[in-house]
Every structure is written in C-alpha cells, then in structure tokens.
Design a protein around this nucleic acid. Structure first.
Lengths: 259, 259
DNA sequence: GCTGGTCATTTTATCGATAAAAAAAGGTTT
DNA sequence: AAACCTTTTTTTATCGATAAAATGACCAGC
C-alpha cells in the first residue's frame, strides 16, 4: 500500500527536460506556443487560455472586469467547456478570480497587492539568483551576456521614443531575467517565480507608461550582469531589491492604482 | 487606457477578509467546506476537485496513475466537464500533470522532487516565520500555544500505537504549522506556501509510515514554539531547516521512492 | 523475429442543450 | 420612497452526444 509503483512514466510524458543538453532553439521560428513539447495549439482550451491571458496582461481586459461565458464565447468563438477549463487554470495562476455560481472576473489590481507581489518576487528572485550563481557555468555566462546586449538594443529604441517596441521590450526584458535564474536547478522555484513574474506584468506595464524620471534601466541591468559574472551574491541581492523596489515605487506613486 | 476603473468590486466578491477582526470561529461546526464564504459544496466541480485531491493525498490514487475521464466518471458519478475543470485546477496545483490530447495523471513522486520541494518549503516557511514574528501579537501567541497543546495530545495517542489517529494528526500538525505563519501578513506568501505544503503531504505520509527511529516530534515543536515566543528568528530558522530536513532524510532513506 | 502498416477500439476534446440559480425589472403596500 | 414580493431575463453549471486523435490488435513482408 505505501510502496510506490516502480516508475511507469514515459508512456504519458514524452518530455525530455534537457538536463545537460545545450538547447540551441532559434525562437521566433514559426510563431508562438511550441516551447518544450506537449503544448498543442490546436486545442480550444489552449487557445482560450492564451487569448484570455494575453488580453488580461495587455490590459485589454481591465482589472475587475467580469468574464461572462457568453461574452467570451462571442469574443473568441470558443464553447463553454474549454472556456471554463481555461478560466479555472487562470484562477490557479492568480490572473482570474472565481466565485461559485457567480462566475469569473479579472483579478483586481491594487497597490497593496503589488507591494505583496514585489516582496514575494524579491524573495524568489534572490534565492534563484543565489542558486544560479552556484550552478551556472561558462555557457550560462555567455548566454547572459548575449541576453543583456539584446535587451540594451531594444532599450535604446524605446528610449528614442518608439512605442511600437513595447511588446518586444517586455519579451527581451523577460528573457534577460529568465536567463539570470535559469541555472538555479530548482523546478519548484522556477515554476513559482514564473507565476509571480507573470502576475507582475500588468503592473510593469503601468511602470512603462510613466515617462517622467528617466530611470536608466540598462545601467541597472549592467550592474546586475557584472555582479553575476563575479558571483557576488550580496551585491546582486542588493541590486535586485533596488531594481524591483524602484518599479514598485514608480507604480505606487503614479496614482493609477486604488489603495 | 492605462488608468484603472475606480473599484467596482463588491458586486462579485462578498468576501470580508477580516483585517483586524478577531474571527472567533468555532470550527467543526456543521461539517466541512464552509470556511470563508464563496465555496459551494453542491457544485460538481468542487466535489470532483476535493474527491480527487483527497484520493491523491491519501495515496488512494497512487503517483503516476492515469486519470481517465471515463474511470473518474464511474468512480465519482460526475460528468466530463466538471471533471476536466477540477483536473485543470489540480494541474496548476501540481498534484496532477496533463499532456495535451493524452489526458491526465497523478503527479509522480521522486526523491529529487521531494528534495526540491523541501528546499522550497524551507525558503517560504522561514520567510513567513520571520514576518509572522514581526507582526504577531499576543492573540497570535495564545493561539499558537493552544495549537501546540492540541498537537501534543494527538501525538501521544499516535505514539501509543493507535493508527486511527493518523488523519487527525495530519490535521493538527497542519494547524500548528499554519498558525506559526498565520501572522505573516502576505497573501502571496501564504497562498504559495499552502500549495507547497499540500504537495508535501504525500511525502509526509511516507515519513509517518516509517516507525524505526523514534523521532521526538513534540520536542521539535516545543523548541519551535519557544523560539516563536522569544521572537528568535535565527533560532527558528535553524529549527525549521532541521525539522524539514529530518523528514526529507527519513523519506529519502526509506527506499520507497524512485530516484 | 522484428518492422511497418491497416483496422478496431478506446479516450480525449468539444459542442449544443438544459435545469437551476442569480440578477434585474416591476408592481404593491405601507 | 423604502422595503418587500413576483415575474422575467440572464447567466452559470452540468449533462449527453460526437468528431478527431491516440492506442492497441492483427497481419504481412523482409
């Protein structure tokens, strides 16, 4: 009863998980969605999940908006079952809240939530960085440098006043931060961090819309990069705290959020 | 576009959230399910979610078991839509894994997963404790002492060799650890910790089934309690690390898990 | 004896229909 | 005009049916 069945995996899960493999991956290949394996974009649930998620993150579906099945039905041409399934997932991912018999709504935003979220991110990010510094090798360093340069490029264009690069900025910023922690070696930490990162995206977007204090993000990223190469944990912890805190401050002071 | 709609909450969410209120709450009142508000036990999704979850945590549904809709259908007499919805939630909670077009299965267990999980728990638990020490007042201390004593009682009965108290032990152990961090004041931390705690339950159950080294859990809990009353953060961090690590070691060495 | 292909069976993913619950709209009575 | 019933309308939660995909069985050929 207590003993476990030997292994019996593999039949269901064709995932490879790429332990030491290098994973070249050209990205922007066909389009989206196909990152590891097992994601089938032709599934309605998947389409619904992605569409709603994107609309929430982009602000297209504003915080506290009620998500009526009939409305989503028309908007995305997807039936009730896959929609509800997608919404259930989004609930667990904290982008949607549900009340029994009363449906779903986009998770509200507030300063206090962002305060909490920022603290959580600091905790996870710092631990992931610490571990990544321990386990990351030369390959990791090289990839990190590359991600930093790509990020710098798009930052230049953004600073030059081209707002069409906003989406690209978000992607590259994310890739840089992902790369930083990518060597941490903890599935749980990565999963959780990912979730928190995604939920912070709506707030980050507000931050980007504020163009008063000309904060030098590239410089901040450069300092973090240097600390990473030096494996200077205390330094990078301080930098990350400041980096995240600065974003929080800007958003909190913007007056665009309740509470 | 970027500005948010004023508040417009309340219509959907009747939750009170009890900021400073004391929340007496007699518990074991009518029965189960009705904890805060908005949980409607008559919903099939809810029933399915709870039933499958319990069966996974109790080991009734072994790790790596495939969860075929038809099988669950017969077992719980619930239709496909609510079942899939419940399974989707469980996927986000890491108790079930899904592969597109190939269905669901109970998340496998392994030593390496438990290693990772334990590290994650240490991180979250320690941070939550630190915050709880900061914010917890007299009321919190009193509740903590109460939870400790209740726990000690059931521990005695368990040590006396009564295996029927196992479920009760799990509940009280949980209440003690919950109480410890209950004053931390961070929604995100609590949510995440909760998820990790639940996923560790299957492993904890293995630990309980090993009755070789007569580990004195009550003493460990007492030390933690004392450190909590003293607000001794470094001490409680050390104790929690050891507490969780000890469980990990026992399970890892039991040979009941692959990898 | 294994490899590869075709057919039968099982299982997933999804739609459309429907009972039950919630919200909205009126209509009384005080 | 505020509190309270009814009646209508909307919306959620769920079932049963079904196309498409995956799995398994069977068979032929090298």
């Amino acid at each position: 009863m207590a003993t476990l069945p030997k292994v019996r995996k593999a039949e269901l899960a064709p995932s490879k998980k790429a332990g030491g493999a290098v994973a070249v991956m050209s990205k922007q290949d066909t389009d989206v969605t196909d990152q590891g394996a097992d994601e089938d974009a032709s599934l309605r649930v998947h389409a619904a999940w992605e569409a709603i998620r994107d609309d929430i993150l982009s602000g297209n579906l504003a915080p506290s908006t009620r998500l009526r099945i009939s409305m989503l039905n028309k908007k995305y041409s997807i039936g009730a079952s896959p929609l509800r399934e997608a919404l259930s997932r989004l609930v667990s991912e904290n982008l949607v809240v549900a009340v029994d018999r009363r449906g779903f709504m986009v998770t509200p935003m507030s300063v206090s939530d962002f305060r909490d979220l920022t603290n959580m991110r600091k905790l996870l990010e710092k631990e992931a960085l610490r571990l990544s510094f321990q386990h990351g090798g030369e390959r990791w360093e090289a990839d990190l440098v590359a991600a930093f340069y790509r990020m710098g490029r798009v930052q230049e264009r953004l600073d030059a006043g081209d707002p069409s690069t906003l989406a690209e900025w978000e992607v590259l910023n994310r890739e840089y931060h992902d790369k930083l922690v990518s060597a941490c070696g903890s599935e749980w930490l990565m999963r959780t961090r990912e979730n928190v990162y995604v939920c912070a995206e709506r707030y980050r977007r507000i931050c980007l819309s504020i163009r008063n204090v000309p904060r030098d993000v590239t410089k901040e990223h450069k300092q973090i990069l240097d600390a990473a190469i030096d494996r200077d944990v205390p330094k990078v912890h301080k930098l990350i705290d400041e980096h995240l805190e600065r974003t929080f401050q800007k958003v909190a002071e913007s007056g665009k959020l309740p509470n």
